[in-house]
Simulated assay, not measured.
Amino acid sequence: MLASRPGSGRRQRHPVQLQPGLEPGQYPPGLMHIRQPPRVERGEALKYFEEVNNAARAAGVTTALWDPFSYLNRATMQWRDPALFAWIKSSWTTRSGTASFDKVYVPKSSPIAAQTLTLNLNGTAFRGLWQGSTQLLAGRDYTVSGSRLTPTTTALTRLTGNRAYGVNSTLQARFSRGLPWSIDIVTNDAPVLSNSTGTADVFTIPTQYRGDALAGMEATYADGSNAGPISRNPYQEFNQAFSPDYPGGTTILTPAFLAALHDNAPVKLTFHYYSGATVTYHVTKSGGSVTGTTS
């Protein structure tokens, strides 16, 4: 276990109910574990560490990271994800501003329009937007109204360039203290899925992601009941029931998910993407065979 900065030594004010196997101050291993693709959206993970370390500092709790050889390279003693550790380390001593999301999605098939993010100041003051070493101009490139930060149509048109799918540019929102908040400007369109056949051991859905990224998946039967290993709600577990393969252009349905489906019972899948898009797909398992269709 790697201990981080100790707390102030004050006694905890309230008892804490721990997840079995966790020690006081230990980061949840499910959130910390490095997997590709990551199951927790990058910006949301950074906000979690910023918030939990601030709370630990205020309560005098020493935090700890259980590292299963994923985070620290034992040969070089270097962090494998320096940016993640920078956020953890910074929050030991100060707060950082963040925003409601770390991306602005700009649909390629639609006219470019201004979009708004909500700033989480966390006691800091907003100092402006930068692209690399260049400061963007307030009024022309963005506006701020209260906690609402809005990159303008003019700025987004310039930042998306030829509007190729994916990340076109990255901005930094800077604050009076703490670390800057990165904002990717992403060109996208709604993903396109195609029909597929496979087996209960190997089944993939051809997927044109078109600059978007998969956030979640719901699975239900025709009568509205939940389908899959998780039965208490329709949302299935990322990387356990399904997983995006961005380089391969597919969405993987795992053997564990398919094994939990009823035979010859059509299942409606609703894929959620970080742009806000949703795409519906249908799968049916019959013995060891699986068929997937877009309608």
Rank of each mutant, 00 (worst) to 15 (best):
Y71W: 15
Y71A: 11
L72V: 11
N73I: 07
N73Q: 11
R74Q: 15
R74G: 09
R74K: 14
R74A: 15
A75E: 15
A75F: 12
A75V: 12
A75S: 14
A75C: 05
T76M: 10
T76E: 13
M77S: 15
M77I: 11
M77A: 15
Q78E: 15
Q78K: 13
Q78G: 06
W79C: 09
R80I: 06
R80N: 15
D81A: 07
D81Y: 11
D81Q: 11
D81E: 14
P82M: 09
P82T: 07
P82L: 09
A83T: 08
L84Y: 07
L84K: 03
L84G: 01
L84D: 02
F85D: 05
F85Y: 14
F85C: 05
I88M: 14
I88A: 03
I88G: 02
K89T: 13
K89A: 15
K89D: 15
K89W: 13
K89V: 13
K89M: 11
S90R: 09
S90K: 08
S91E: 04
S91Y: 01
S91T: 02
W92E: 13
W92L: 02
T93W: 08
T94P: 00
T94L: 08
R95K: 06
R95Q: 12
S96P: 01
S96Q: 02
S96W: 01
G97Y: 04
G97M: 01
G97P: 05
G97R: 01
T98N: 06
T98V: 00
A99Q: 02
A99R: 01
A99L: 09
A99P: 00
S100F: 03
S100K: 02
F101H: 14
F101D: 13
D102W: 09
D102G: 12
K103F: 08
K103A: 09
V104N: 07
V106T: 06
V106W: 07
P107Y: 06
P107E: 08
P107C: 03
P107G: 05
P107I: 03
S109I: 00
I112V: 13
I112H: 07
I112E: 03
I112F: 09
I112W: 09
A114D: 07
Q115C: 05
Q115I: 05
Q115E: 14
Q115V: 11
L117V: 03
T118C: 07
T118P: 01
N120F: 11
N120Y: 10
N120D: 14
N120Q: 11
N120S: 10
L121F: 10
N122S: 10
N122D: 14
G123N: 05
G123L: 05
G123R: 05
G123S: 07
G123C: 06
T124G: 06
T124Q: 10
T124R: 06
A125G: 02
A125H: 08
A125W: 00
R127T: 12
R127M: 11
R127A: 10
G128N: 01
G128T: 04
G128P: 03
G128M: 03
